[in-house]
Design a protein around this nucleic acid. Sequence first.
DNA 1: TTGAAAGCGCTAACAC
DNA 2: GTGTTAGCGCTTTCAA
Lengths: 343, 343
Amino acid sequence: MTADPRRLRPSSPTLHDVARTAGVSLATASRVLNGSERKVAESFRERVERAASELGYTANLSAQATARGTSAVIALLVADIADPYFGLIASGVARGADEHGLIVTIAITERDLTREARILRALRGQRPRGVILAASRTGDSEAATVSELAGFRALGARTVTFGPGGERSVTIGNRDGAEQLGREMASLGYRRAIGLGAAEGVRTSDDRLGGFSAGFQAGGGEILRIHRGGFEHESGAEMMAAALAEGVEPGTLVFALSDVVAIGAMTAIRDGGRTVGEDIAVCGFDDVPVSRDVTPQLTTVRVPLSDLGYQAFRAAVDGEWTQSEAPLEVLVRASTPPRKEAP
Amino acid sequence: MTADPRRLRPSSPTLHDVARTAGVSLATASRVLNGSERKVAESFRERVERAASELGYTANLSAQATARGTSAVIALLVADIADPYFGLIASGVARGADEHGLIVTIAITERDLTREARILRALRGQRPRGVILAASRTGDSEAATVSELAGFRALGARTVTFGPGGERSVTIGNRDGAEQLGREMASLGYRRAIGLGAAEGVRTSDDRLGGFSAGFQAGGGEILRIHRGGFEHESGAEMMAAALAEGVEPGTLVFALSDVVAIGAMTAIRDGGRTVGEDIAVCGFDDVPVSRDVTPQLTTVRVPLSDLGYQAFRAAVDGEWTQSEAPLEVLVRASTPPRKEAP
DNA sequence: TTGAAAGCGCTAACAC
DNA sequence: GTGTTAGCGCTTTCAA
């Protein structure tokens, strides 16, 4: 009784094993176990199923993928999974994948375009069914990203991006939402605002800042200046510190391109010995959960991030898909108290 | 000139294609492109590499996995990816995977043990190199989870859990950290505390609550009562609302089993018309980033979550691995102002 | 060193 | 309805 050499490396029962112990052919076993349309007699089906469960058989997805020529994976690429913005999106994607029995792989770009392209390239090895890119936020994407994305399409994978770039894209009404917010802030009595944005050319930032300006000015407000930084909490604090250094009059409103940045700014305001609200008002965009936890609560524009993640998933797998425009909603909270009309 | 039937479904260049255009055998092409130890003459190597890049070849990971009998994936299972606690862990895991050229797949348990077992079962299909479970927090795990985990080990996958259960486990000094916190709170002058925990039997909760009690009592404090709920923000708010309904004297300290829960409690305190700090003090555990954004800033115990995620990854792939005990640190902030000794 | 060929576990014609 | 068999794309003996 010599050891079976196959057992040298731990392995699991194969379809072959199941077929043999059930006394049927490989094909039959495959048909009953792995969802084929074809019919199998009830008696056979039973025997196969019993054998499979006795042996604890689980189909090897890699083998299935090579045989079928198509995988069951959706690749998700985000800038930073610890950022609530992306965490919410990821949760929506994961929910969709779970419902459809697909696997989601995740990779982090760290907001580095070079990394993004490199990762995208490596991802091809997975031959994913779809790729969801929620990362660059870099407007009409970098050339490298675009070309990698095209490569995926050639592979038969659907590419979905947040913002333009992919075959299908999930869009957020950044401009409209921000415009509405700007208008609302003006009607609250604010007349002077400072913007906190990313570098010029970054689509999301440009849209939000542009929309806000339009709305705010339409309501009689004026944008004093715009500080530039990034999407991180830290960056918000830095931009705000710089703003304070230049001087910020009481009654000024600060609009940050995202809640995370706005919250960073709130910290800086406090560290600068000022207070958020009557003194310096702050508003953001996204309505990530934290925005309700800070004091005062943050005025913002609600973006259904998790739903959008789910939509992105659908876009990646459903033949006919059209985005149902996400309903944006301005949420006025305590960080922007109404202001009696300036003199 | 008929169409190549292979082109019916979009496909990509195969190793075969590369070999043919380079004028070498499949074996040689494989050796140069996919890291074999074996030597290949420089001239051949060049030709193959050129052919590969000309054709834009990328190895099919599924095929590689079936052929090699081992995959390049690490499966990560978390309760809720939108929760900063898990987001941070995930980021650490992702960082490790990126460094080692591995793929991480992610799945969400939604804190549902049944789902957890079901997902774990489905995950076997991936034949992952390792499984990281950061989800149940349910003490000495459910039987179903344990048995699924055992199944993985039989497959040759390493199982890593946060807390006991897996082959290897990443532990957080919950008890010690909380004890230190309790002691510190007592030394600040607090004498009465209310605990906010999960159901009894949930390991993380028991450890943190138990540790805190021990430290607090050792310092002369008294635990008035413990409210039970879950790990969600919402749950924190509910527990605190219940606590307030029963009556909470000014000067009382609330210890929540996690920052997320503590922050939910802070909301409830405010909604109840009370204030956090001098009136009702609050402290948590984890030091997720939000804890510094709330006002007053939250006193807590710092847990290097992202590092732990990285460690979990290492545990899943490194032959010899031993956890380097995570340094815990009590961070006293404004949510627990020093209290003049009670009369 | 290089190449031919036998797998890896599974699917899908195709024939019975 | 069932089984045979030729793949899927890649790795890895084993000769040459």
